[in-house]
Amino acid sequence: MSTQRPTLSVVIPVYNERNTILEIVDRVLEQPEVDEIVLVDDHSTDGTRDILRSLQGREKLQVLFHERNQGKGAALRTAFRAATKDLVLIQDADLEYDPADYPHLLAPIHMGRADAVFGSRFLGGTHRVLYFWHYLANRFLTLLSNVFTGLNLTDMEVCYKVFRREHLQRMTIVCDRFGIEPELTAKIARMKVRIYEVPVSYYGRTYEEGKKIGWKDGVSAIYWIVRFGLIRTR
């Protein structure tokens, strides 16, 4: 009986990451599990678009462009539609997450135990020590999400999430910005699939180094958690 592993698309939303984009693409391509990378530039203004244009036609790469800035959620929505492989893994373009963690993220699925896998920055992986209030906010948002979804995640806001593409195709994604994290969590929870969580490394950036998420995104996340918890959005 064939035990061929499922194929993998890595989707990367990109906005103003000219200093890291080439390195993250190279590091993702180094991972033997990767069959396809889908990059979506969300109308960068710092020269990133020109760098991405230079990558068009490179093996394993799809490079797509938004004609106006819409947000991370919108970029992922575009990437999900373009992905062609069995599994879809979300990767940020800013080097905060290490593609060397892919084998750990994929192992529960390859072992036949999981249909979706979340990374967690709070389960013992290597992480840079940074903002206390960000840590508290992440824990609060995860707790609130768990109240509505019935899951027992430790890090709902983590970038690293892996889904079977067939499950993503059943979702209608509506969030354009960082509300995408609670939206994906709520909608995969409703599908009653097998979800695992594994520790991942985290090399966080300061705002001076280019970190984009802020307190307004945290407030927005509360809105989306409650919305998706109370209203079944098809």
Rank of each mutant, 00 (worst) to 15 (best):
M1L: 13
S2C: 01
R5I: 01
T7F: 07
L8E: 14
S9W: 03
V11W: 10
I12S: 06
I12D: 07
I21L: 09
I24C: 02
V25Q: 03
L29H: 04
P32C: 07
V38E: 06
V40W: 02
V40P: 01
D41E: 02
S44V: 05
T48G: 09
I51S: 04
L52D: 04
L55E: 01
Q56H: 05
G57A: 02
R58S: 00
L61Q: 01
Q62A: 07
Q62R: 12
V63Y: 08
L64A: 12
F65P: 14
E67N: 15
N69Q: 11
Q70N: 11
G71T: 12
R77G: 04
R81Y: 03
T84P: 02
T84V: 01
V88I: 06
I90Y: 12
D94S: 06
E96P: 09
D98K: 05
A100C: 10
D101S: 15
Y102K: 05
L105K: 11
A107K: 15
I109V: 12
M111I: 11
G112D: 06
D115N: 10
A116C: 15
F118L: 06
S120R: 08
R121G: 05
F122I: 09
F122L: 15
G125R: 07
H127E: 03
V129S: 07
Y131E: 15
L136N: 12
A137Q: 12
S145F: 03
N146S: 00
T149N: 04
G150R: 01
V158F: 00
K161W: 12
V162Y: 05
R165M: 05
R165F: 02
E166K: 11
L168M: 08
Q169F: 00
R170C: 08
M171S: 02
D176L: 13
D176Y: 10
R177W: 10
F178G: 01
G179H: 14
A186M: 08
R190G: 05
M191H: 06
V193R: 13
V200A: 14
Y202W: 01
R205C: 03
E209M: 06
K211V: 00
G218T: 04
V219G: 12
W224Q: 08
I225H: 14
I225V: 07
I225C: 05
V226M: 10
F228V: 05
F228E: 10
G229H: 00
L230R: 10
I231G: 10
T233Y: 09
